[in-house]
């Protein structure tokens, strides 16, 4: 059984007050390319409904519907007659999933790479050589210690290292 979690509902509302404008018309789901090809198994309206009700266990624990299927195409945000910022709300939900270590591995890999290298895709020797052949300049990316300091400050380090299980 799902339990209403008022604290979670208030947290979402604090993050993005537009949640309270939703009147469940389902325009978002009607325009969603993922809802279309999953026959509604992925359903943005339902995620918003669960957020309004504060059903944290559904959203974060069982992930039904699975918020990680959002393609971030932002169509729902444009279409919503009530100007609910759906993808901002989905972001908060996914952030909470991250803190609970319930997220697809590809996100871990990217997060880990940015933490270790400052960039999502480190430069391989082959690419460095290819850049030279193509006449492209050498790239000096961010000092890694500086990026690590910031990612410690925002608690990212703790969450990404704990997620490595």
């Amino acid at each position: 059984m799902s339990v209403i979690n008022f604290e979670f509902r208030n947290e979402v509302l604090k993050h993005n007050a537009s949640l309270s404008y939703c009147y469940q018309c389902s325009t978002c789901s009607g325009g969603c390319p993922i809802a279309l090809i999953t026959n509604g198994k992925y359903n943005p309206r339902k995620i918003i409904e669960e957020a309004i009700l504060g059903l944290k266990d559904k959203l974060v624990e069982s992930q039904d519907p699975n918020p990680w299927l959002c393609s971030t195409c932002q169509k729902c945000v444009e279409l919503c007659p009530q100007k609910v910022e759906l993808t901002e709300i989905f972001t908060l939900i996914k952030n909470r999933c991250f803190e609970s270590h319930k997220y697809p591995e590809a996100f871990y890999l990217q997060g880990h790479s940015v933490f270790e290298n400052g960039i999502a895709i480190p430069y391989s020797n082959a690419i460095v050589a290819r850049r030279k052949t193509l006449g492209l300049p050498e790239i000096k990316t961010a000092p890694i210690e500086e990026i690590k300091t910031l990612m410690k400050e925002t608690n990212f380090e703790k969450n990404i290292l704990e997620g490595n299980k």
Binding site: W68, N95, F98, Y103, A106, F107, I147, T154, F156
Partner: peptide
């Protein structure tokens, strides 16, 4: 990617 797992880190970087 990063924004979806940590909004604050995304804003900061």
């Amino acid at each position: 990617g990063i924004e979806q797992i940590d909004h604050k880190t995304w804003l900061t970087l």
